[in-house]
């Protein structure tokens, strides 16, 4: 009996090792295959991503709450320290904003009167869905957030994601009850923008840092730090006029934009549905604009 077991072991051990090596190499090959499939944006991969998003959504919904509580508690301690200073700043800000509110009311009345005079036809109605941010990606190579609103709530690929301050990104994947928003700082984000003061057009490109940069700016464009940047509406992917940020730096590294959005306080985002299909959804025949995104 003992001799037989030993014989089996002598035969089985190398075989087992060979099997393990084969399995290991197959898994490495599978990783490479996944890389190619992911890069090629195969439909199957997108389906799996969506399905997994829905599976993970409730999990994140549950485990993100203690994480938020901890982050909130830490934040509150910091806030207590700064409460007096912040209060003074807020009072000043309220005083300033009241003047702006006055100006805005006056302009709104004037605008409506002028529109009535011109018989102006307003743009398409906007529908909006607000979703809780239940996850962000902490990797070094991707900038996206998970939002607790999905196809059931009317979220669709390509919709703009806004906070109160400005544009944060665009919906890139949609599950039934959750969606992923590709932030404007992500490497793959390309957004047609316009400089509000000079009406110069450019493309806002993320590079995974906090400040995305402007591409395809005309060489004689005159920019200065503080110029406001908003969406231009070109390409039909986003409506024009959504605020994005201000020019932070014009230098050797290009033109850097400081977004209005406060990334550390991304709790809720509004997803805006303008009924624009644009370049993002998987149309039967993708328009040529798609290749230039890559």
């Amino acid at each position: 009996m003992k001799a037989r077991t030993e014989a089996v072991f002598r035969f089985a051990a190398p075989l087992k090792a060979a099997m393990a090596r084969f399995a290991f190499l197959s898994l490495v090959a599978a990783s490479f295959a996944l890389m190619l499939l992911g890069k090629a944006e195969v439909v199957v991969v997108e389906r799996v991503r969506m399905a997994l998003l829905d599976v993970l959504a409730p999990v994140f919904g549950v485990i993100s709450q203690p994480a938020e509580a901890v982050a909130g508690a830490v934040g509150e301690v910091g806030q207590v320290v700064h409460v007096y200073q912040e209060n003074r700043q807020l009072r000043e800000q309220v005083a300033r904003l009241e003047q702006w509110q006055e100006a805005a009311r006056r302009l709104d009345t004037e605008n409506q009167a002028l529109r009535a005079l011109l018989n102006f036809r307003a743009g398409p109605e906007t529908r909006q869905v607000t979703g809780r941010v239940m996850g962000d990606s902490g990797g070094a190579f991707v900038r996206s957030i998970l939002v607790a609103a999905g196809a059931e709530q009317g979220v669709a690929k390509g919709q703009a994601a806004m906070t109160g301050e400005g544009l944060v990104g665009r919906v890139s994947e949609v599950g039934e009850r959750s969606a992923r928003v590709l932030l404007i700082t992500d490497l793959n984000s390309r957004i047609p923008v316009v400089i509000e003061r000079s009406r110069e057009r450019a493309v806002l490109a993320g590079d995974n840092t906090a400040r995305p940069r402007l591409l395809y700016l005309s060489p004689d464009a005159r920019l200065s730090p503080g110029d406001r940047v908003s969406t231009s509406g070109h390409g039909g992917a986003l409506p024009p006029g959504l605020p994005i940020g201000v020019v932070a730096e014009v230098g050797e590294r290009g033109v850097l934009i400081q977004p209005y959005a406060d990334w550390a306080r991304l709790d809720y985002v509004r997803l805006l549905d303008y009924g624009l299909t644009g370049i993002l959804p998987s149309l039967p025949a993708p328009p040529p604009a798609k290749s230039s995104r890559k």
């Binding site: 898994l27 992911g38 799996v48 991503r49 991707v142």
Partner: peptide
């Protein structure tokens, strides 16, 4: 085992919305 390592890498990439396959390759290596 290697299969568990691979599965963890794939799930991490899917969850983070990261390019697929890199994490599983790193972890397997």
């Amino acid at each position: 085992p290697a299969s568990a390592v691979f599965a963890i890498g794939v799930i991490q990439d899917f969850a983070a919305g990261a390019p697929l396959g890199i994490t599983s390759l790193i972890l397997l290596g």
